[in-house]
Amino acid sequence: MPDAFHDSSARDPPPSCHPGTRRNLIDTITSWGLGTSQHTEPMLWMYGPAGVGKSAVAQTCSERLAEGDKLGAALFLSRSVGLNQRDDPCRLFPSLAYQIATKSKPFGDILDNCIQDDPTLVTKSIREQFQELLVKPLSQLEADAAGVVEGLVVIIDGLDECGKGPGTHCDIIEIVAASIRNRTTPFRWVFFSRPETHIVGSFTTDDLCSLTYQLEIRVSRDIDYDITLYLTDGLRKIQQRNGLSDSWLSERDIGVLVSLSGGLFIYAATVIRFVGGRELLGPMDQLRAVLALASGNKGTDSVHPLSELDLFYTLIMRCVPPGIIPRIQAILLLTSFTAFGDTQNARTGRPLLGLQT
């Protein structure tokens, strides 16, 4: 999955933390990865709801660890529309093995021979791939070469985005955990994911608790300062790029945007993309359209300032289990009718589609 690598052109520019933001989280993870933290667990799991900036933190940590020659491999999984082969579990371990091979020529030579001897290795089950593409080549390294890969950090962002659902997610966690318990891989493993029930269940079992350093990233107004910094710098660049006067944006406007963001970096990032977007209404009108949301007045413009979030929430809706989709549709339909104060047919007085309030 080359498009999922941390330095892939397909992800350029990748989501990353704005300078000066998320310092505590980044320092905590990078110090753990560099082995300078008081936490010595061989696995780290950072979890949080969608939109809080997990991928940005993962990207920034990947870059920091790469600068210190400590990054073994990094994959950023995604099943979003338009992204190809970034959620295929059958490509996960081959992709990690490939990246590690670029860090260690002896490992790469052994891996190359293994695949030439049996090209079908890359098509086997993920458990077999892990053994044949990682465990066995690692076991054949000489002491000096083994020392080069010792302690390298492997980052998997978006575990919950891996294509085949809960069973695959749990299998990946258990495969890695077993290698840690059996000491068949020398890496420090990092997972970023949403706190899906099955993933929480896997990481909170008795045997994994002792192996895993857990970090939670929450939706919180405690990061309003970081969002303020991000919005201020982003809007200043838009101002300079478009030759706007200082009067186009006030501190009060920034405060409104921070309030609208509600502790979600994805909202703030979407605001910046929309206001700075080309071939739309122009930054001043686009900024006013966003600010109007604070008063419930969405203006008269046909372009919705948060249209890019539609894709984001479409992805969330795709995660709804098929068996309860009809119930979810009924709830959303009822909510929509209730919002307009009309759950009954105006002509007959009967409930619409049989829905009762």
Rank of each mutant, 00 (worst) to 15 (best):
Ser80Leu: 04
Ser80Gln: 06
Val81Leu: 02
Val81Pro: 01
Leu83Met: 11
Asn84Thr: 13
Gln85Leu: 12
Arg86Ile: 05
Asp87Ser: 15
Asp87Leu: 00
Asp88His: 04
Asp88Ala: 07
Pro89Lys: 06
Cys90Ala: 13
Leu92Ser: 06
Leu92Arg: 03
Leu92Gly: 05
Leu92Tyr: 05
Pro94Tyr: 08
Pro94Asp: 10
Ser95Phe: 06
Ser95Asn: 11
Ser95Gly: 15
Leu96Thr: 05
Leu96Cys: 07
Ala97Tyr: 04
Ala97Glu: 07
Ala97Asn: 09
Tyr98Thr: 07
Gln99Ile: 04
Gln99His: 08
Gln99Glu: 10
Ile100Trp: 04
Ala101Thr: 05
Ala101Phe: 03
Lys103Ile: 10
Lys103Gln: 14
Asn113Asp: 14
Gln116Glu: 13
Gln116Trp: 06
Asp118Ser: 13
Asp118Asn: 14
Pro119Ala: 08
Thr120Cys: 04
Thr120Asn: 12
Leu121Asp: 03
Leu121Lys: 12
Lys124Glu: 12
Lys124Tyr: 03
Ile126Asn: 11
Ile126Met: 14
Ile126Ala: 08
Ile126Lys: 10
Glu128Pro: 01
Gln129Met: 07
Gln129Asp: 08
Gln129Trp: 06
Gln131Cys: 00
Gln131Trp: 00
Glu132His: 11
Leu133Cys: 08
Leu133Met: 14
Leu134Gly: 06
Leu134Arg: 07
Leu134Phe: 08
Val135His: 02
Leu138Ser: 04
Leu138Val: 14
Ser139Thr: 08
Ser139Leu: 05
Ser139Gly: 09
Ser139Asp: 11
Ala143Gln: 15
Asp144Trp: 07
Ala145Arg: 07
Ala146Gln: 13
Gly147Ala: 13
Val148Gln: 15
Val148Thr: 14
Val149Trp: 08
Glu150Ala: 13
Val153Ser: 05
Val153Ala: 07
Val153Glu: 05
Val154Ile: 15
Ile156Thr: 04
Asp157Ala: 08
Gly158Gln: 02
Leu159Tyr: 01
Leu159Gly: 01
Leu159Gln: 02
Asp160Gln: 00
Cys162Ser: 04
Cys162Met: 01
Cys162Glu: 02
Gly163Thr: 00
Gly163Met: 00
Gly163Ile: 00
Lys164Glu: 10
Gly165Val: 00
Gly165Cys: 00
Gly165Pro: 01
Gly165Met: 00
Gly167His: 03
Gly167Lys: 04
Gly167Tyr: 00
Gly167Val: 01
Gly167Asp: 09
